[in-house]
């Protein structure tokens, strides 16, 4: 689904991603873990070119997204993204947040988008919040609404960057539940998270990042049960 080839990313002199080659398969749930500053967010953000790769390729639907000539906006319509800080549009109601892009990008008529938006909101238990502004929502509600906003575009894959890190502990569960439901429905997902329980339960594959590289990867059983790399062992001993 997404093929990453020799991906490098530097900010000025700081090399953050160091020659990463990796493939995300259709329907796969990939969880990215690793210490702070190891490049997890940068890796994720390169997948939809929110950060432009310094070199290398991101092949998605037969095109190289790293190529500046590619219509990135078209491809981003198929790659959902969910942020740590939710980033709901403050000047739009919850439902408007969801319908804005599909309608503006002519993926749906306003009526279709509304219907679809309401249906998705019902699924995450937010149908009564359709007409309020995001600032009245709790963190957990905001994140569920943000997931719905991404889903409304019918993306082929969704990228999550620490979707529960900004939440009060009692709200983490409600967001993870929505993500588990998505996973069960077969959505392709790439998730950066510190929620090791979620990783263990949902991931098909864990990528452990360290120093801008994927230091180790495998099934949750392999990575959590029998880590090979000393850095993985060290990291896991701290977080588990």
């Amino acid at each position: 689904m997404i093929e990453v080839i020799d991906l490098c990313k530097s900010f000025g002199n700081l090399q953050v991603l160091n020659n990463i080659t990796e493939t995300i398969h259709e329907g796969e749930k990939v969880v990215v873990i690793g210490p702070s500053g190891s490049g997890k967010s940068t890796f994720l953000r390169c997948l939809n070119c929110m950060e432009d790769p310094t070199s290398g390729s991101i092949i998605f639907e037969g095109e190289d997204l790293a190529d500046m000539k590619v219509d990135i906006n078209k491809h981003r319509q198929n790659i959902g993204m969910v942020f740590q800080q939710f980033n709901l549009f403050n000047n739009k109601t919850v439902l408007e947040n969801i319908t804005l892009a599909p309608v503006h990008l002519k993926k749906m008529t306003p009526e279709e988008a509304k219907e679809k938006g309401m249906e998705l909101l019902r699924r995450v238990g937010l149908e009564d919040k359709a007409d309020v502004y995001p600032s009245t929502l709790s963190g957990g509600q905001k994140q569920r609404a943000a997931i719905v906003r991404a889903l409304a575009m019918n993306p082929k894959v969704i990228l999550f960057d620490e979707p529960t890190s900004a939440l009060d502990p009692e709200m983490v569960g409600e967001v993870l539940d929505v993500m588990k439901q998505l996973a069960a429905e077969g959505m392709t997902m790439v998730v950066v998270t510190h929620e090791m329980g979620f990783a263990r339960e949902v991931a098909d594959r864990i990528l452990f990042m360290d120093g801008g590289q994927i230091a180790e990867q495998g099934t949750p059983e392999e990575v959590f049960g029998n880590p090979q790399h000393p850095r993985t062992k060290e990291f896991l001993s701290k977080v588990l």
């Binding site: 939809n48 929110m50 906006n73 078209k74 491809h75 981003r76 319509q77 790659i79 959902g80 993204m81 942020f83 800080q85 939710f86 980033n87 709901l88 549009f89 403050n90 000047n91 739009k92 804005l100 892009a101 503006h104 990008l105 943000a146 906003r149 991404a150 575009m153």
Partner: peptide, 20 residues
């Protein structure tokens, strides 16, 4: 984050600027 969210949905810089 407002601009990022717009761009991540596939909206252009101009559209996100204008609407958000």
């Amino acid at each position: 984050g407002q601009m990022e969210a717009g761009r991540a949905l596939g909206l252009s810089y101009g559209t996100t600027m204008l609407k958000i």
